[in-house]
């Protein structure tokens, strides 16, 4: 079986995690990867915890079972840590990427991830600066691209722009692209 990278997104409904997971699959698909993305719907209310998933591979993906042991975990909302065990099932060498303004040490403890790799980004601040609302999905996409080395940020953003062009105004598109680029540049290992 070929090597497949499995990614899990944790967020609250309204933070754009489902869209980010879909966009990641669509952009990397256009860049030549084989991809899957799917959401895990729960209460479907704004603010409720949601999960979204990606699979990324160099060869066709056949599996349709759920992702149980992700190698990459993204956390878009640090208040989730009170109720959701974001480390559940994550592999021993999993990478965690969190949207947070906390100190990495404090965050590491709250995430309950032991010595596993942690990357931190204040994605909410970037989102507020660049798009005017706390929807941190674009900066987290940028951080994910950087940490996983899945694509070059400029070619990623080029496809990302085309994808958003179908749905959004140019102001929102430019803000999101800038937010993604800043996420790429500002994410730090904690």
């Amino acid at each position: 079986m070929s090597k497949v990278l499995e990614i899990r997104w944790h967020a609250r409904a309204g933070q754009g995690a489902v869209m980010a997971a879909n966009n990641l699959a669509q952009v990397l698909g256009e860049l030549g990867k084989y991809t899957q993305a799917y959401p895990e719907y729960g209460a479907e209310k704004r603010g409720a915890p949601v999960e979204a998933f990606d699979r990324i591979s160099d060869s066709p993906i056949r599996i349709h079972s759920r992702i149980e042991e992700p190698q990459v975990v993204l956390v878009l909302d640090q208040t989730l840590l009170r109720t959701v065990d974001v480390s559940e099932g994550a592999t021993p060498d999993a990478i965690f990427i969190a949207n947070s303004n906390r100190q990495p040490d404090e965050l590491r403890q709250k995430l309950n991830i032991g010595e596993r790799r942690l990357y931190v980004l204040d994605g909410s601040r970037i989102a507020i600066n660049e798009i005017g609302v706390d929807i941190p999905n674009a900066p987290m996409l940028g951080a994910l691209v950087k940490v996983t080395n899945l694509a070059d940020i400029n070619s990623f953003n080029e496809k990302f722009r085309a994808l958003m062009g179908k749905k959004f105004t140019s102001k929102i598109i430019e803000g999101n692209l800038k937010a993604a680029k800043r996420g790429f540049e500002e994410v730090k290992q904690g």
Binding site: A25, Q26, G29, Y34, T35, Q36, A37, I61, H64
Partner: peptide, 12 residues
């Protein structure tokens, strides 16, 4: 198609 598993899954 399988609901959600295929209907809502992005695939290449």
């Amino acid at each position: 198609i399988d609901g959600f598993q295929t209907s809502h899954m992005v695939e290449t």
